[in-house]
Each structure stands twice: as C-alpha cells, then as structure tokens.
Design a protein around this nucleic acid. Structure first.
Lengths: 338, 338
DNA sequence: GTGAAAGCGCTAACAG
DNA sequence: CTGTTAGCGCTTTCAC
C-alpha cells in the first residue's frame, strides 16, 4: 500500500520506495550531487524509468527559489528584429537549461503592466526590450528580480542607472548611414521617424551630425510596420519637396515605402536612395536590395541573456552596460546612377 | 517580531499579519473567491501595496497543480510562419492569464527531446508544431499533459489519433495553386520541395492532382530558408529544362529563388511564374509581389491555443481535429504577360 | 554513504 | 464571513 502508483503522476516518493531508498537519495542522484554506489544509482534510475517519473518543477522551484525560466518582454514577435533577439536569447538560455517565457506587450498595451507582473512572478530574471513607462520599469525593478534592458537610458534621481543594459550605439548607426549618403552625393534627406521609440531621436541626430550642412525633413509614422511605410510613401515622395534620399526608422517601414514608391512609379532606380535600420533578413532579397544598418539584433539577445545568466548564477548585481557596434550594410537601394 | 519584513520577499503571511487577517483571507481576496466586508478587502489590498507583495507562482502551482503556462514548440522563431503562430497563440493565452514558453527546437535538434522534457514539466499543456520523431511524441503524450499538434497525422496501432490537432488542408493548398497556374496556361512546373516537412508531399500531390496531364519536376532543398532558395535558383532555372512556373515549398524559399533569378537575369517579368506557401507578410512587398497560398498561420496559433485552453479548463480530453481552409493569394509573380 | 525530517509559500477543506 | 490547519513535491541540513 505504500508504493502504489494510483492514478496521479508518480512523485519522488514513489521512486524512492520502488528503488528502496529515501527521497533524499533520489533527489541527490537526480541533481548529481553526492556520489553513490553504482548499485544505488542504478536502482534509482531504473525506478525512474519504470515509473516514467518526471520531476515537478514547481515543487523544486519552491524550495530552491529558482524557476530556471527567464522572461523576455518584447514589442512584437512578428517583427524580425524582435524574433532575432528571441533567437539569440534562446541560443544561450536553452543549452543551460533555462526556458524562455516570451511576453509580447504590443498585443495589449494597456495590459502590459499586469502582464509583466504575471511574468515577473514566474521567472528568475527579465530581459526587457519594449519601451515601457518609467513607472513600470521602477515597479519591475522593485520586484527584486534581476533585469537586463535593451537601450536603457533612464537613470534615477542620483543619475544612477537602474539596471544592466545592452545597447547598440544608435547615434553612430545614424551617423554611419548619414556619412554614406553624404558621400554618395545625397543632400536632400527625408527621415521617416517613429517617435514612439527611444532610439528614434538618436538615429536622427546621428544623421544630422553626419551632414551638418543639410536640412533633414522629418515625417513620422505611428507604427513600425511595412504598412506604415506604404501609407506614408505618397506623402514623402509626392508633396513637391526635392528629395534624393529617404531614411526610415527601420527596415519594415523602408520596405513598405520602397514598395509603394515603385507602385506609384515615382522611383527610378538610382534617383532616390532608400535606407533603413536593423538589417532584417528580407532586406537582402528585395529589388533593389536595401541599404541598412545592422543593429546586431541576435547578438543583442545573446549579450543580454549572457549577462542575465551571469547575474543569476553569480549573484553579481553590478550594473553593467554593454555597447554593441552597428554595421553599415550598403546595398543597391542607395546606389547612385546619376 | 511577527510581522517583520527582513530581507526576503514578503510572503502571504506578512500580508496577513500586517492586515490583521489570516492567510486564507488574503488568498481568497487575491483569487476573488468569497465576498468579504469592504473593510477587510481594503486592509488586505493596502497591506499588499505597502509591502509590494508579489505572490509566489511556484507555491501556488504546487498546491493547485497548475502553472498557467503553456508550451509552444516550434521549429524556428525567425521564420514568419512560426512567429505568426506564436502571435496567434499569445493573443489567446495572454488575456486569460497564461504565459507562453517558447521552445525553438531547431537550435539544437539532437537536444530537442531533453528540451521538450524540461518544457513539459513547467507547463499545463503543449502546442507542438515542429516535426518530431514519433517516439518523442509518444513520450510527450506519456507525460499526461494535454497536447495539441499542428498537422498531426500519426495514429497508434488501432488507428486512433493520439492528440487533438489543428491543420490546414495541405493537399487543397497545393491544388488551389496548381489550378491557378494551369488556368493561366502554365504546363511545365518545377516544385522546389522540402521533404523534411510532413506537409511537403501533400502540397506536391495537390499540385499534381490539379494538373494531371503535366509532369512536375521536383527538386529538393535542405532548409526552408531564403538562402536555400537562392542557392538552388541556378539549378532550377539554368539546367536546360523548359519551365514556365516554379512552386516552392514555402515563401522563404520562393523569395530567395526569385531574387537570385533576377540577379542571374534569367527571369523576365511574366515569363516564369513563381509562387510559394504561407503568405508571410513580406510577400506582398516584393517586386513583383509573390503569389502564395495563405496557410492561416496566425489562425492556426489561435485555434490550437483555444483548443488547449478548453482542454485545460474543462478537462474534456476528446481528441478533436480542426481543419482550416487555405486561401489562394494571387499576385503579380504569376501574372502572364505572354 | 544514506535516511529522517523540517520546511519553501500557498490553497482549500473544515471549523467556528 | 474568517481563522486553523493539513499538506502539495521537493531539497537540504543533520544525524546515523
């Protein structure tokens, strides 16, 4: 009556009694602590196999205080920039036995906060990529779970950074693209911005600093999507402004804008340069291929996860800032045929 | 000494003693069970806020036996087909308070099994999209956690389905595309297949059935990526075969192939039709826009999650099959200018 | 080297 | 309507 298996999932106690050892032994065998006699180890393993025993993660978490889950809060999993981050994060987390819980906060922006709350209670630490209200970040920090942010620039009253961060130099990214356009003779630039993003103004400033003698016209779009680029194309290209280059906040917008520009028949190859940011995989396969600045999205995911796991494993709470260098990727969309 | 807060995170007991009630009351207030006097509710809420109390999800799971997490096993989060599935799943799970744990099994195929093991122990149920070895599926089923599969076709010895499933009619998808090509006068088709996928042969058979008098040449690629399409393009287009249409296993392959075809200069608009499957967002923005068959990826994610949550909430273990209808999306890449 | 036992924080009976 | 209490399954000292 004591090693019965009933209908419920087998527990460690079932394994222990079948193997004729104590639960402590089973636990230690599973976690590879002490060395036991091969005989005991064998018996335990055999019992586990025969019962098809699966440890209960919740019970383990409760006593260890660790879930071996990490949370990844991103804006939109369908955006390749974010799915690359997720991929990079997963490539680090998975081999170390950590699972990734992904929270897509765009789905329901007004519910982002409760969602992140729920997330925070299930994970050992968080990687936060979305642009969140400061109050939200403070609250998250208040949970006491380690957080690594992308592009963190906020500081507390004493100008201390609140969390470790990974960022790519947005100003430099804009500057590199600006230089390239300037050097290929472009002087009349329109920047299609996405002011909702933290990084928007840095990219624009980089552009400006690269071509200080040129005025840059700025037009904004409400979402970072191909549709937004498509919708804004006519405004950008057909309102009578002299233009020889359009820089978009990201590749998605650029793709939509470029597509619609050809649709409208206002774009002759080589006349108006088009460029974006991110270097999403599709950019290389467009006609013409799109010039862009690679923001190392996958590497961002890798670095953030490495840092978070380091905090988790070592307890080192030092606030670090990792800065990644952008890479200019010149393709035919900015070629100059004039 | 009894409502001290020490250094650790506050527990429900801290809240209870600060509010001057019992832990049961706190628990019930939080879970919205009984109606308490407004006074008690207020005190509890105030204590929670003042301590910044956050419930411990592991402890709750242990007693309820439910984690409110669901696992999503997909092949590659960077593939828009899969990220759309994830998006659809999230749109259902998130408002109901379920978190999504995403396992990208392509990262490390030989480790897929331990990874899914770890996943299974952390979730209430699984949605499995990747093509997994049958033994792996059996094992997953053996855990006793509800599973919903995409495109499940395996049956046990008695020809019973093992899990509920959501699928899109792949044969019909192929057939619709085949009809379209046939009706626009295409007779010499090359199919660029991805035989590793379960659905590959159904799509091909659908094509064949739509044009029974035409021989279809089949060429395979090893991965479902734009690079694979790019690499195979010369083989497909330059080996002397008469061709007037190329159908690819999916849009990614088609995008790569079409791009390289223009690069090679072998594609005059309207001469050779190109088409794919999935209707990923980028297809609409290509030059020319790509004809494809929409496989309702987001809807697949929605339906699978709805079914899984239904199983979880009602306990209804009936094995169901949900069949989604594909939609042909005709665009310029198959226009006939001859 | 191995077992006994004390909880981890929470929920859900059951009493009151 | 509210409090007491018994575990959920596991890890981890601490004895043996």
């Amino acid at each position: 009556m004591n090693n019965n298996v009933r209908n419920r999932r087998p527990t460690m106690r079932d394994v222990a009694s079948l193997a004729g050892v104590s639960t402590a032994t089973v636990s230690m065998v599973l976690n590879g602590r002490n060395k036991f006699t091969p005989e005991v180890t064998q018996k335990v393993l055999a019992a586990i196999k025969s019962l098809n025993y699966q440890p209960n993660a919740a019970a383990s978490s409760m006593v260890t205080g660790r879930t071996r889950c990490i949370g990844l809060a991103i804006l939109d999993i369908r955006n390749p920039y974010f799915s690359n981050i997720a991929q990079g994060a997963n490539s680090i987390a998975q081999p170390l036995g950590y699972s990734l819980i992904i929270a897509d906060t765009a789905e329901n922006p007004e519910r982002a906060f409760p969602q992140l709350n729920a997330l925070a209670s299930r994970v050992d630490g968080l990687i936060v990529s979305s642009r969140l209200p400061e109050a939200c970040i403070d609250q998250l920090v208040g949970f006491g779970k380690p957080i690594v942010m992308f592009g963190q620039t906020d500081r507390d009253e004493a100008q201390h950074l609140k969390t470790s961060s990974v960022q790519v130099n947005s100003h430099k990214a804009g500057y590199m693209l600006g230089r390239h356009l300037y050097e290929t003779g472009r002087r009349n630039i329109t920047y299609v911005g996405f002011p909702h993003s933290l990084w928007d103004s840095y990219r624009l400033q980089g552009l400006r600093d690269a071509m200080p003698t040129c005025a840059i016209r700025v037009i904004s779009v409400p979402t970072q999507s191909m549709e937004a680029g498509e919708n804004i194309a006519a405004n950008v290209l057909l309102d009578g402004h002299a233009i020889d280059a359009v820089v978009c906040y990201n590749d998605m917008i650029a793709i939509g804008l470029m597509h619609e520009a050809y649709n409208l028949g206002v774009l002759q190859p080589g006349r108006i340069a088009i460029a974006g940011f991110d270097n999403i995989p599709a950019t290389r396969f467009l006609t013409p291929p799109l010039t862009t600045v690679d923001l190392r999205s996958e590497q961002q995911g890798v670095c953030a996860t490495e840092r978070l796991l380091e905090i988790l494993e070592t307890g080192d709470q030092t606030i670090t800032e990792k800065l990644l260098e952008p890479r200019l990727v010149v393709r035919a969309s900015t070629a100059n045929h004039s």
